[in-house]
Simulated scan of single mutants.
Amino acid sequence: MHVPRAPERLVYGAAREVEIHPDRDALVHAAAEHVVALARAAVAARGVFTIALAGGATPRPVYERLAQPSFVGRIDWSRARIFFGDERCVPPDHPESNYRMAREALLDRVPIPAANVHRIAGEDEPEHAARAYERTLRACFGDVEGPPARSFDLVLLGMGDDGHTASLFPGAPAMNEARRWVVPSEIARPHPMWRITLTPVVIDAAAAVTFLVDGASKAERLAHVLEGRDGAERLPAARIAPTHGALRWMIDAEAASQLRGRS
């Protein structure tokens, strides 16, 4: 039986734990195991597992791995509640919909009740969709002023080559939001589009926040984020800082290629 090689581990300060996996497949497998472990622990402790899914190319194979026979039975999907970190303002069957990607890769392939999946209504007017999704989150985590005491068991995030995460882009007002949990955000690249995104107010209240990053195209920006190089404070991915939860970066060797702290 093939035994995966243990990842290289780095720690940046007290807050950022980094796992470097030898290749993309090893990263995908480890990320799927990570989701399983947190899901089982949450269900054992509280009877429910809440997760905010990320969009993008990196998480998709993780979702596909979780839907494989060797994984699917290891999570009690009847106890899982699925949310989304962000969504493009498109209908749910649109090729650019994060919900559609997650549905095709995972949700249609596991025994999860439809009522347990809470998608963002990207087809609605952006402000209306954001406020409606915030009401959904507040119904789950408590209708409080400011951040909840605790939000998700796990938030999965990716990182763009510009340092954005979810739909929190450099210079966007959403990064400085102190009260709202969900906001609309208009972005310019790769083409003008409205998106709906969770804000750090609710992301940072999660019990665990895990970034998944792969590929050489992310290496330079990732080094800025993790090592605090000049300008890192302007990068949304660098500013995610769970208040009480665990922050983990799971990356492959190509994404780690410009990190100075490697052995």
Rank of each mutant, 00 (worst) to 15 (best):
V3C: 00
A6Q: 04
Y12S: 09
Y12T: 10
G13Q: 08
A15C: 12
R16E: 13
E17T: 14
P22F: 08
D23S: 09
R24N: 06
A32Y: 06
A39Y: 06
V43D: 07
A44Y: 01
G47A: 15
V48N: 10
L53Y: 04
G55L: 03
A57F: 06
T58H: 09
R60E: 15
V62S: 07
E64S: 06
R65L: 05
S70Q: 13
F71W: 08
D76Q: 06
W77K: 02
W77E: 05
R79G: 00
G85E: 09
E96W: 14
S97R: 08
M101W: 10
M101V: 03
A102D: 09
L106I: 06
L107H: 06
R109C: 10
A115R: 14
C140G: 02
F141S: 03
D143V: 11
P148I: 04
R150Q: 13
S151I: 01
D153T: 06
L154Y: 11
V155H: 05
V155K: 00
G158Q: 08
G158N: 10
M159W: 11
D161I: 10
D161E: 15
D161K: 14
S167Y: 07
L168I: 14
P170Y: 02
A172K: 07
P173D: 03
M175W: 11
E177S: 00
E177C: 06
S185M: 11
A188K: 13
R189T: 13
M193C: 15
W194E: 01
I196N: 07
T197A: 01
L198D: 04
V202D: 01
I203H: 04
I203D: 06
V213A: 02
V213I: 15
V213T: 07
D214G: 11
K218L: 02
K218W: 07
A219K: 03
V225E: 10
D230N: 03
A232R: 01
P236C: 08
P236K: 05
I240M: 12
P242C: 12
P242D: 11
G245C: 05
I251R: 04
I251M: 10
E254A: 15
A255H: 05
Q258N: 14
